[in-house]
Computed example of a mutant assay.
Amino acid sequence: MFYWLMKYVVIGPIVKAIFRPWIIGRRNVPSEGAAILASNHLSFVDSIFLPLMIDRPVAFLAKSDYFTGRGIKGWATRMFFKATGQIPIDRSGGQASEASLNTGLQVLGRGDLLGIYPEGTRSPDGKLYRGRTGIARMALEAHVPVVPVVMVDTDTMMPIGTRLPRVVRVGVVIGEPLDFSRFAGMEGDRYILRSVTDEIMVALQRLGEQEYEDVYASTVKDRLKKPSTDSSKADAAA
């Protein structure tokens, strides 16, 4: 009920009136039953506009830090993320990754839509990067289709590092569902998981025509951090 009120009565109408988002392929989202919405990830606002533009609730797995802030700001952030259907998870890796996967499977087990960013993090430069295989494992274990989704110009609206969005018209392009039932029972095969994940990323690249680079986005982010770190060390040594 809270989700419905925020989407259709409070947040949704205001956001749509200001930013006038557009959508192509809405009919490709299944009207019922579980499915994974696999999206590129350009901006913080991706998790806001995708749920607003389709008719069914979407649960996203969001880092738990967004739900633990203190004071009025922490409360507002927590309420906002709950209102947009996001679920807190620990993204520290190891057992936390397994717990995140199980949380996603619970969402799918209820027959709901699960939103996932296969790249694992926001693109640092607008390119599409290599997908992580957790999405493939979820799809095969839950026996659900994967619907490719491309967010358009959300990085122009709110680039990484900015706090307030610009008034830019953004879009959502939704492709036809991908069926991986031919790999049923093979979720333990890492080669199959990589193949399924790569097929999803190819579908995203064709749908959005983003430049693709076959490395992890997190690796690129680490590279971008190194020059500033190295220069700081050089300045300290001087």
Rank of each mutant, 00 (worst) to 15 (best):
G131V: 05
P13G: 07
R70T: 15
E98W: 06
V9K: 05
Q95T: 15
P57C: 01
G12L: 09
M1D: 08
L114S: 13
K82E: 15
G12W: 10
G94A: 12
L50C: 04
M157P: 04
K63I: 10
R169P: 07
L128E: 04
L50F: 13
R110C: 13
A35S: 11
Y3A: 04
A96N: 07
S231H: 02
A238T: 00
I135F: 03
I48S: 03
W22M: 00
V149D: 04
A217I: 11
T133I: 09
G131W: 07
S47F: 08
S100K: 09
G94C: 03
S228Y: 03
W22D: 02
R132V: 02
A136T: 11
Y191T: 09
M158V: 11
F44M: 14
E213K: 14
Q106G: 13
L164S: 07
A184F: 07
V9S: 05
V150D: 01
V29D: 03
N28K: 00
R166Y: 05
T154A: 03
A17L: 12
R27G: 00
I200V: 15
T229M: 07
L101P: 10
E187F: 07
P124W: 04
W75A: 15
M151E: 13
I18Y: 01
L128H: 07
Q95H: 06
T68S: 15
P88V: 11
I72K: 09
I174N: 03
R56M: 01
P124D: 11
V10R: 05
L114N: 13
I18G: 00
M157T: 10
I160C: 00
G111V: 11
K221T: 14
A142M: 11
I160P: 01
V45Y: 07
R169D: 06
K127G: 01
I116K: 12
M79W: 13
N102C: 04
N28I: 03
A76R: 11
I72Y: 07
V45I: 14
I48D: 03
R26E: 05
T103A: 15
Y66V: 10
G208K: 02
G171K: 10
R130Q: 14
M151A: 12
Q106R: 15
R70G: 14
G93D: 01
A17F: 07
K127D: 05
M186R: 15
L105E: 14
P159V: 06
G12S: 07
A203E: 08
A217T: 14
